[in-house]
Design a protein around this nucleic acid. Structure first.
Length: 480
RNA sequence: GGCGCCAUGGCCAAGCGGUAAGGCAAGGGUCUGCAAAACCCUUAUUCCCCGGUCCGAUUCCGGGUGGCGCCUCCA
């Protein structure tokens, strides 16, 4: 398959280091608050990539870190630790906050059908690994100690700016508010590997190290965790595009300096979700969470569908109008699937329901779309084309089920629910007897062309939570 | 200031040199007392602008314009 690689700025044929195995690393969340749906867009796109690789038969080993320490809101010994800030806000300990928001994160992921990575590692669990890394970098001459902190020496690298062609003199310090320059650094682009000196005396989490009591810099955790679980050869590293610089750039610098060779071949960066203020963030505009969408009556999967309609390398503009559009499209799609012959729905696809030869063109369309740099928009079109085809319903259902192992839109189960809703004949109860009597009364009124009365009864039933549908076979009713 | 990404109908969006997919919405129709649902039909001579290459460019090149991102919190 072709994958766009941020390192080369081109689409390349994906070839893992070890045939049949994909080692994949994802920068996980900083668990100081809820994730917003922009954060989750990245994880949805990465989830699709992972599942498609599995669909192709790869043994995917995916690792994600959980940042529960040392993520300062700015560099250079200024700013605050986000975790500590969150803890103070909620009068809890840092570890309580971390646990709470880690759980919340995976709960949101579950609602969006994002598979939990094989290994999820909180950053605080690998301090020894970071120390070993920093120690190795010092011994190899890639790091230095200044004013109590250990820094990575970017001047030792042949190439530091691997993603973009930055020139040192053109980079501005302190572009962002609240960021002050750290004059202990030898070079402007050097970064901290280990802190022992911090302006915050109330730093809660500290560990002993050869350089004094302190805590790790914010880039070292991803290198440490990735190297620990996935070894020296990584195939795909994922993350939001904003992480390319400096986070991923620094990861590459420290990892490759430490292991002494090329580390990761493919860098998969997801573009941002935008709203009317630009990039979605926790501090600007409405703080959109999965729970908020649910409160507003949206199925989280409709949001997943919304993301899949677009391409991961395109900025996506969020608005409620656009989400409504996606939700309507998703519901219509599910209804169409629910309309397929229900007698065939229960057929086991493995028992000859699928004619492989007839299915081949549709399967090819789906794969071609996904092979083309994970073009989910086209993959969705492949589903629509399949639905329009003259394949037997059983084959359609079987293929949709197959595609949905990647798309994860609950296509089959949601359709089944829809179908069940329409077909369930409620058991007779006293309440039902009353309803049936009203329906009968309306039918009588209709026959007498007394439409005012018929509509009055329909409204009455609506108020009771009963929806009526006139069909050529008679009146159907269901609970709303 | 530097670097990078992007620009297609009302909205989302495909398109990777051969003459504009698909979805949503909208309009019309069939059906219906009216609804709802379903089905059928319609909706970009044109792809931000200006040059260039080519028999031919939405697709390649150059230059603009606009949007977004990064330049030590961010997915």
């Amino acid at each position: 398959m072709l994958l766009y690689n941020s390192l080369t700025h081109t689409r390349e044929e994906f070839v893992p280091h070890e045939p049949g195995v994909v080692r994949m690393y994802t920068c996980g969340p900083t668990v100081y608050h809820y994730a917003h749906i922009g954060n989750l867009r990245s994880y949805i796109c990465e989830d699709i990539l992972e599942k498609y690789l599995r669909y192709l038969g790869y043994d995917v080993r995916r690792v994600m870190n959980i940042t529960d320490v040392g993520h300062l809101s700015s560099d250079a010994d200024t700013g605050e630790d986000k975790m500590l800030k969150g803890a103070r806000r909620e009068h809890k300990t840092v570890m309580e906050i971390a646990q709470y928001y880690t759980d919340a994160f995976f709960s949101d992921c579950a609602k969006l059908n994002i598979r939990r990575p094989d290994i999820v590692q909180p950053a605080t669990g690998c301090i020894d690994e970071y120390i070993q890394l920093v120690d190795g970098l010092l011994k190899k001459g890639y790091a230095y100690i200044a004013d109590g902190n250990v820094y990575f020496d970017t001047a030792k690298l042949d190439e530091y700016y691997v993603f973009n062609k930055h020139e040192r003199e053109n980079l501005l310090s302190g572009v962002r508010e609240g960021v002050e320059e750290d004059f202990s650094k030898h070079n402007k682009e050097d970064f901290v590997l280990w802190f022992t000196k911090s302006k915050f005396d109330d730093q809660e989490l500290k560990w002993d190290s050869p350089w004094g009591v302190g805590y790790p810099g914010w880039h070292i955790e991803c290198s440490g965790i990735s190297l620990k679980y996935l070894g020296e050869y990584l195939d795909i590293h994922c993350g939001g595009i904003d992480n390319a610089f400096p986070h991923h750039t620094n990861e590459i610098a420290q990892s490759e300096a430490y292991i002494g060779h090329k580390w990761c071949n493919y860098w998969f960066h997801v573009m941002h979700l935008l709203n009317d203020t630009g990039k979605m963030s926790k501090s600007k505009g409405e703080f959109l969470t999965v729970s908020l969408l649910e409160q507003k009556g949206y199925d989280p999967i409709a949001y997943r569908f919304f993301c899949l309609q677009s391409h991961y390398r395109r900025p996506l503009i969020f608005s409620y109008a656009n989400l409504d559009n996606a939700a309507a499209a998703y519901n219509k799609l599910v209804d169409r699937i629910a309309g397929l012959d229900p007698a065939m729905a229960s057929l086991d696809p493995s028992k000859g329901a699928l004619d492989d030869e007839a299915a081949a063109p549709y399967r090819k369309a789906f794969r071609d779309a996904m092979d083309n740099d994970v073009n989910t928009s086209l993959a969705l079109t492949a589903v629509y084309d399949l639905l329009k085809s003259d394949l037997p319903d059983a084959a359609k259902l079987s293929l949709i089920g197959e595609f949905d192992t990647v798309l994860s839109l609950n296509l089959l189960s949601a359709a089944e629910t829809q179908r069940a809703k329409k077909e369930t004949v409620p058991a007779e109860t006293e309440a039902d007897a009353e309803i049936l009597a009203l329906i009968e009364a309306r039918t009588v009124a209709k026959k007498a062309k007394n439409y005012a009365e018929a509509d009055r009864i329909r409204n009455q039933l609506n108020a009771m939570g009963i929806a009526l549908t006139d069909t050529p076979q008679g009146v159907q009713w269901s609970r709303v």
